[in-house]
């Protein structure tokens, strides 16, 4: 069973790579950041299915850190607008 989980891991990586196309082509910074967020969520799922395949339960903790940091990029991206609003 757990070896077969390599298949979902592969599929998830494929969707992740396809989503990265949006980071490269844009067209706006909004689109790029959005796609980077998708990388975070899909990366979490990849880590979760990879943990039983590689028999490394600590990968779940890595997924937890991914989840914690998913908001940081979006917040950092939008935080600047406030500093520019009050010059």
């Amino acid at each position: 069973m757990s070896e077969l989980l390599a298949i979902p891991a592969l599929i998830l990586l494929l969707t992740l790579g396809a989503g990265l196309v949006r980071v490269v082509i844009g067209p706006t910074p909004t689109d790029r950041l959005m796609a980077a967020q998708l990388t975070g969520t899909t990366g979490i799922a990849t880590l979760l299915v990879l943990a039983p395949v590689l028999r490394a339960p600590a990968l779940v903790d890595v997924a937890l850190v991914f989840a914690l940091l998913a908001a940081v990029a979006a917040a950092a991206f939008t935080r600047q607008r406030r500093s520019a609003e009050e010059p």
Binding site: V23, R32, T39, L47, L54, A58, V62
Partner: peptide, 21 residues
């Protein structure tokens, strides 16, 4: 933004190499 995505993927590489830390 590409660098951030790169960092996330690099973390996946480390995970694949069984180096969760």
């Amino acid at each position: 933004i590409l660098f951030i995505a790169f960092g996330l993927l690099l973390a996946l590489v480390w995970a694949r190499l069984r180096a969760p830390d």
